[in-house]
Design a protein around this nucleic acid. Structure first.
Lengths: 204, 204
DNA sequence: GCAGTTATTATACACTTGAATAATAGTGGC
DNA sequence: GCCACTATTATTCAAGTGTATAATAACTGC
């Protein structure tokens, strides 16, 4: 009756590991393949431990979704420098790895598909979406002002909606079938499209 | 020992009903909530019948995905009339009901999330995506020619990628949080964006 | 070192899952 | 009206599900 030996991890660390394992399983096996047991195997622990850290599996999945949203938005929101550089970086970051990869879009889609089912996930989604779009709107506002073509908040809102749609759409396309595009093609198309949408060259 | 009375349906009809019930369940309860039993209840039959019409649940789900793709693309691909009208209709159709509704995006996302898991679904997705984008590319080619600005296939390809991304992105946004936009706003933004992208007015 | 605390394991439980099987009821042909 | 055919139901099964519980191994403070 030998028990497995184990390592006692600090609380925050193990929670993080479990969330990461949850995301791995969802992206590899889908939401229904991400069972407590499978997640535990991935995290290198036994299934019972999940309930020591989370009230339920559903709660763990919800927290995992928060982590996805955060990782998708943080890189894009933290662009720095001149408005022009920031806009360019925003586009490039969202359309190249690690943001643009098949794992990310699988996770995103898995959660999106639950938004109608689970109000908790719906709320998390809405917050993330608005934060992302507002960050883009501010970015566009700065960019247009710097280029000498300042726009009203209402105009910026419309630009943000359009460009957010464009970038999201290209992101999905690229993640799902990257092999249909040449290296750097999506970024190049996105840059040219944003220039056309704003009626301004992005480069100096 | 009274058995339930039932109706013997023609083969094609019942298959259709089962597929429709599958989609209803996926959109309402998610992929993992769409169990054989739940689907059977929705279709008004008993669970065993599923295996009379399909080799397995997975096969039924795959056929259901084909049906989704078909319904998402058929309306958009069958636009008719002058190139200008067709382009306008293409945009409007994709961004208004019944194509743009929360059920559609839930189904789409549920399947997208499985593309990495299930090669069968991946193939169905790729076919549908390419058919859709190629239809758009032809549409754009006709439109540009009609407007006296004919473009090379390569240019049309880039336009098609960008506009497909834009429309897809706005479609997702609208389906998931339609209440964040005013009536007709997404269509209006899309029209203006496509005009800017192509450098041409769509209206006469 | 040792005792107390608790993170972790192991096991059990009630329930759901997709699938297989056998019985039966509806239907079309004669 | 009866018969053959098969679509449909009812039941069963083994495997897998999330969760609850109790035993235990790993750390912490002393």
């Amino acid at each position: 009756m030998n028990r497995r030996s184990f390592h006692r991890a600090p609380e925050g660390e193990r929670r993080q590991e479990l969330i990461e394992a949850t995301l791995d399983c969802i992206s590899e096996f889908g939401l229904k393949g991400a069972t407590v047991r499978q997640i535990a195997v991935r995290a290198g622990v036994t299934a019972g431990l999940v309930r020591h850290y989370f009230d339920s599996k559903d709660q763990m999945v919800a927290e995992a979704y928060r982590a996805v949203i955060a990782s998708l938005t943080e890189k894009a929101k933290n662009v720095e420098g001149e408005p022009t550089t920031r806009l360019k970086d925003f586009i490039a970051i969202n359309l190249t790895e690690p943001v643009a990869d098949s794992r990310s879009v699988s996770l995103w889609a898995a959660f999106i598909s639950q938004v109608r089912v689970d109000p908790v996930l719906a709320e998390i989604h809405r917050e993330g979406y608005l934060a992302f779009r507002n960050a883009l709107q501010d970015l566009l506002s700065d960019f247009l002002a710097a280029k000498g073509k300042p726009a009203s908040p209402e105009e910026c809102r419309r630009y943000a909606i359009a460009i957010n749609g464009l970038v999201d759409g290209l992101w999905v396309e690229g993640c799902l079938a990257g092999d249909l595009f040449r290296e750097g093609e999506l970024v190049s198309i996105a840059m040219a499209s944003v220039e056309a949408l704003l009626g301004l060259p992005i480069e100096e």
